[in-house]
Design a protein around this nucleic acid. Sequence first.
DNA 1: CGACACATGTAACACGTTACATGATTTG
DNA 2: CAAATCATGTAACGTGTTACATGTGTCG
Lengths: 176, 176
Amino acid sequence: MSVREGLLALLGEQPSNGHQLKTGFEAITGGVWPLNVGQVYTTLDRLERDGLVAQAHSSADGATQKRYELTAAGREELASWWSFVPADDPPPRDELMLKVLFAMGQDREHALAVITAQRTALLSLLQRRRREQRDQPTDDPATAAVRDALVVRAEADLRWLDMCEARVVGMKGSSR
Amino acid sequence: MSVREGLLALLGEQPSNGHQLKTGFEAITGGVWPLNVGQVYTTLDRLERDGLVAQAHSSADGATQKRYELTAAGREELASWWSFVPADDPPPRDELMLKVLFAMGQDREHALAVITAQRTALLSLLQRRRREQRDQPTDDPATAAVRDALVVRAEADLRWLDMCEARVVGMKGSSR
DNA sequence: CGACACATGTAACACGTTACATGATTTG
DNA sequence: CAAATCATGTAACGTGTTACATGTGTCG
């Protein structure tokens, strides 16, 4: 449901056509979340079907351009989205968590191996991100914030991996 | 793709029927990720279609039970999954990030309001989780690990929100 | 002109999710 | 027997995603 809401938010700022939405979406997310243009159109269709957006009377303009804008229902939906706090109940499934949990549920050696591998990969990812943040500073707060998020989360995942390792090591007995 | 891989991992331990898979999946994830039984069957169908699992010759048994097991291809797939490190490139879209980023891209007051609201909600969530961890201790490492993860991530998100707030406050000029 | 960005769209498929229908087995 | 649990499945729908087809406008 992210694309959908993202488009709503963009249209909440100003009526736009498909391409502008794609561009806007990618700009706001600092380029980390590329968006296939096609998806913008399919999503717009669905939003239109649901009565949340409508085509603005393009009247004149140039040529093959459409402008979409929020309907009243769309504005309502958007407002409720802003105030809505994503309840993680259940929290979104996450591949890292899933993998480590399943590994822990099985073989002990295996669990340690998986944890180690993931930590190594995460560490190098983290370093790359920090380097990026240091070497390519940006004055765009959004881009900076995205990078912050990725770094902070990677750190959290690393910490979690350490905790998992400790738990596995502390597990009594049977390596099976 | 989480359910799919989860079922593969469970079948890697032992051949099972649909219900056992549902139960196993929920047990390993400490009950945080409930799984609709129906989805187990649809996913099993897809796995069978892709040649990763097959029905074990149920031969005798009792009645209406099927047992699924990994095929050779399935074992390969599973092995590669274990060693595969989830590249987040692009990282999975996340509702909290998306919301805050879009808010930052728009109105300054709005951004602060959204950040504050999210922080409040996250804080209470975090406290609930910590209480849970304190009041309902568990000896199951998987359950404990799941709780760790949720706590650690909530903390990371909170820290990130603080960073975002600082950036917004530091933003020069125009509240528009 | 040719390349590139702008612009719109469709078809096909993947996975996730829920609601519903059906029956067998166990147990109070 | 009645209720709960075990067990299998289907139908329908939603979003995400890619690949492909098509056309316009602009600029070197």
